[in-house]
Simulated scan of single mutants.
Amino acid sequence: MAWDLRLQGVGNASAVELGSAMATIERHGQPWLTIDCGGEGLTAFLDHYGRAPQALFITHTHLDHVAGFERLFVEAYFNPSLRGRIRLYVPAKLVPLLHQRVGDYPNPLAEGGANFWDAFQVIPVGESFWHQGVRLEVFPVRHHWPDTAFGLRLHGSLVWTGDTRPIPEMLARMADAGELIAHDCALHGNPSHSGIDDLEREYPQVLLERCLLYHYGSAQEGEALEARGYRIGRQGELVALKPTTAMQVDVA
């Protein structure tokens, strides 16, 4: 079974030319699970696939990762085949934050009669969840404030850190099966995000060799990271993943 990762965007909140950080896990060339819903990222998704995402995992609720939801609401609510069927896997501690950010607006339709979440199937998740018979794992990361940002693991294939500072103790447990590690990294770090010096200080070389860096600040920053010998993600890139070794059940 072929698994891939398509990058809708790789930039930080200011690098709109690189697209908001967002990606889609593909299975057999079809979108399977999308990570986050930024504004530029959703545009890239719609342009490439020609339809709305059917399932999303939300890492955190900063607007560069959830700003596409208002547009996705309109896309889903007025389409009978989509209304209430787009699955949103949301870490339970993020549910109230996501509602405050994108759902808690009086009368999402001017004519009334609609609730924002009518358009979606919201599924609060804990340390793991099942999607189409495949078990995925969820873990907290170090971004801005405790318990407000989470990463995702598809065992044996992919670890997506989301926005984070270095998390060596977490990756020792959550990236121990040879996964590709898509990691937040800019040329220079700050209290909410990793810089390359941070990763070099905190991670062994064998782990750095599995990292695909994204959420950098500009094309020039990406080139500088490459010049230091690291692999960077590029907007629109399709990255081959190893077949997952996650627990699976037949849901046919």
Rank of each mutant, 00 (worst) to 15 (best):
C185A: 12
R85F: 10
F57G: 09
V138H: 01
Y77Q: 05
H28P: 04
P53N: 02
R153N: 08
Q132C: 02
F150D: 05
L152A: 09
G236C: 00
A227Y: 14
G41I: 04
A240C: 01
L208P: 06
D36R: 03
Q205K: 14
L63N: 11
Q248L: 02
A219K: 14
M1Q: 04
W3I: 00
F73Q: 00
D197H: 14
W160H: 10
R27S: 06
V16W: 12
L213E: 03
E237R: 13
G236I: 10
W117S: 09
S14A: 10
L212W: 06
L238G: 02
R231V: 09
V74Q: 12
P96G: 05
G103T: 05
T161G: 02
E202H: 13
P191K: 11
T164I: 03
L199P: 03
F120D: 03
H183F: 15
R27Y: 05
H28M: 15
V249R: 14
D147A: 12
G133P: 05
A114W: 07
L180S: 02
E127D: 15
S194Y: 04
L72A: 00
H131R: 03
R135S: 03
E127F: 08
L171W: 00
L98D: 07
H48C: 08
A92Q: 15
S14G: 12
R165I: 09
I123D: 13
R27G: 00
M170T: 15
E40M: 14
P108Y: 13
N79A: 11
V206K: 14
S128H: 11
L56I: 12
A175W: 02
W117Y: 15
R101A: 15
Q121H: 14
R228H: 12
A15L: 08
